[in-house]
Structures are given as structure tokens and as C-alpha cells.
């Protein structure tokens, strides 16, 4: 940040409980950067507010009415470029996905299909079985193991040669006006974008849109854990460990109780055994760092791991 930069943002968010509006917030402001100094206030940029209103109308129309739904529409402008985003978090019976207007119906139906399933009561050790990551969920594992490690500029690891994990921003300009570019996260490149949640925040180097690719076909193991939905994850930079909370997984025809995978990122790299198919959108990731929550796009093919 060498020359002064002005960043403007407007955000609308709503919480709807079974179709009823419970909370509604509007936030707007402008931050002016000069070197390491930021002056921010809640000035209103009418055009950004209008863009937010249009986006949240679209979210409202698509929001399921039998769920807990949080709608967030945001419009930001830096260097004369306006970027708009709109997401909704859908919750059904304690299970959550981050979705958008286009996928809300499909994602809500998926959540409903998970509710009320009888759970296997015998404890399982995920080390004893191969794991197949469905519905793009492997992107969350690699968001933690490769993406956050790249943000922290941690040393490169030996990953499968067929595997690609890239941050591919969907916007041309980041939150301080720099042009974005794709980053090869396995090759030690950090994400290019500096991002921020609001006008009050310091921009940080963060992932924007993580895409996992790779074609290493595998035979589907007869006895395996099938992961369908994650509840979140984290990366501990001090010891380079990854934690992933599994919300919905099956062993054969039986659903498993929620469990947690906790491994070093080196163990994650060793565990990856195969991948097949095109990258599939994962219900997005709300990534929290330094108290700032940002949505990160995530997609991955079906992937096979075995933490032996």
C-alpha cells in the first residue's frame, strides 16, 4: 500500500427464522488508506446500497422458508471497480451450508435429507478406513492444509504430482486496488488478494476461490467412510495441524455421528490417494481469520484419502 487508496462498502444482512424476519442490518462505510494508516467512517455510497438491495431481493426470493437462513449481500468499490457478492447460510436442525440464490433449493433439500437419520452408535476410528470426500468437501480439507499454509508462507510439501490446488479469484481487483491473479498454493505461492470484511478492518492476504483439480482414478473401496457435509475446519499455524469437523458421513448404509479429523498437514498430503471427476462446488466456506469472516469459494472433485 504505497499510494492512497479508497475502499467503499455497503452490506445488508438479514436473519430469517422459518420465513420470518428476525434481524436486519445495514452497514456502510469508506476507508481511506495512506501507507499503514487507515481513516474510516460510515459514509454512505448510495450506488453501493442500491446494488446491495438488488442482491438481497434475489436472496429473499430464493430463501427456503422452513429453515434458519442468514442472507448477506455486499457491494464494494475500490479503484472504480465495483464487486458484488450475495450468500445465504441455511440451517436445518443444527446442520448448515453456505449457499447462494442459485443453489439454495438444492442445498436446503440436501440438508433436509440428512435430518433425522438414525446414527451408528459404534465408535469408529477414521484411521482404520479409507475416506471418500463427496460434494466438493475435499476443498475444505485442502483449504486448511494447503490454503492457510500458503497464507502463512509455510514450507512446500510433497503433494501428489497429479494434484492441483489453486486460488482463482473471481474478481479482477482486490480490496486495496491491486490486480488479482491465480496462485498455485501447492507450489508455495500465497493468495494474491488482500481482503477485508468491512471498512473497519485491516486488509489481509486471504483466499478467495479455492479450486482443487486432479485426475487419479481410484476403485471405490467396499468398506469406507463417505463424507457428505462438513461443519467447519481450522489450521493451526504453530504446529501446522489441520482440524476438520465432519457433520454428515456414512459407513456403508449407516450414518455416522459427527466426528473430527485432526492431522498434520504433512499427514494430509500423504493421505491423498486419488481423485476423480470435475471439481464440484462445495457449499461455500465462511473463513475466519483475525476476527474477519469472509466467504471463500470452494470446489473439488471426489477424493480418496486414507490416514493410516
Amino acid at each position: 500500500m504505497t499510494s492512497p487508496v479508497t475502499f467503499a462498502i455497503a452490506t445488508r444482512d438479514e436473519l430469517r427464522l422459518r420465513g420470518r424476519l428476525a434481524e436486519q442490518r445495514l452497514s456502510h462505510g469508506i476507508a481511506r488508506h495512506d501507507g499503514d494508516a487507515i481513516d474510516a467512517d460510515d459514509s454512505r455510497d448510495d450506488e453501493l446500497v442500491v446494488r446491495c438491495d438488488a442482491e438481497i431481493d434475489g436472496l429473499r426470493a430464493a430463501a427456503p422458508i422452513d429453515a434458519r437462513v442468514r442472507l448477506v449481500a455486499s457491494a464494494r468499490r475500490v479503484a472504480n471497480t465495483t464487486i458484488v457478492s450475495a450468500t445465504m447460510t441455511i440451517g436445518v436442525d443444527g446442520l448448515f451450508v453456505v449457499s447462494d440464490a442459485l443453489h439454495a433449493a438444492e442445498d436446503a433439500a440436501f440438508l433436509r435429507s440428512l435430518v433425522g437419520q438414525a446414527l451408528l452408535t459404534v465408535p469408529i476410528d477414521y484411521h482404520e478406513l479409507p475416506i471418500v470426500w463427496h460434494r466438493g468437501s475435499a476443498s475444505v480439507l485442502l483449504h486448511e492444509a494447503a490454503g492457510h499454509a500458503a497464507e502463512h508462507e509455510h514450507a512446500r510439501l510433497e503433494w501428489p504430482s497429479w494434484l492441483s490446488v489453486r486460488d482463482e479469484p473471481l474478481f479482477a481487483i482486490d480490496d486495496i486496488g491491486n490486480r488479482t491473479r491465480a496462485a498455485d498454493l501447492l507450489a508455495g505461492e500465497a493468495p494474491s488478494s488482500l481482503r477485508r470484511e468491512s471498512f473497519r478492518d485491516v486488509p489481509l492476504r486471504r483466499m478467495s476461490n479455492l479450486v482443487v483439480r486432479g485426475n487419479a482414478p481410484f476403485e471405490m473401496p467396499d468398506r469406507r467412510i463417505d463424507i457428505h457435509l462438513l461443519a467447519g475446519g481450522s489450521y493451526e499455524p504453530l504446529d501446522e495441524t489441520v482440524t476438520v469437523h465432519v457433520a454428515a458421513a456414512k459407513l456403508g448404509e449407516r450414518w455416522l455421528p459427527p466426528f473430527t479429523i485432526h492431522e498434520s498437514r504433512a499427514a494430509v498430503a500423504r493421505a491423498i490417494n486419488g481423485a476423480t471427476g470435475e471439481p464440484r462446488r462445495s457449499p461455500g466456506v465462511v473463513c475466519s481469520a483475525e476476527g474477519q469472516e469472509l466467504v471463500v469459494g470452494s470446489s473439488a472433485p471426489a477424493m480418496l484419502t486414507w490416514f493410516r
Partner: peptide, 24 residues
């Protein structure tokens, strides 16, 4: 970084509904 923030706002609670927005 040194960040100075100046803002003002209003919050309205009406039964079970909570609404807030800036108020310059």
C-alpha cells in the same frame, strides 16, 4: 496499522425483530 474509525448508528427492537443501520 493505525486505524481510526468514526461511526454512529441506531438499533430498533420491536417485539422479536431487531433492525439496525448507520445514522450519520
Amino acid at each position: 496499522h493505525v486505524i481510526r474509525v468514526n461511526e454512529s448508528g441506531v438499533a430498533i427492537e420491536n417485539d422479536e425483530r431487531f433492525v439496525c443501520h448507520p445514522d450519520p
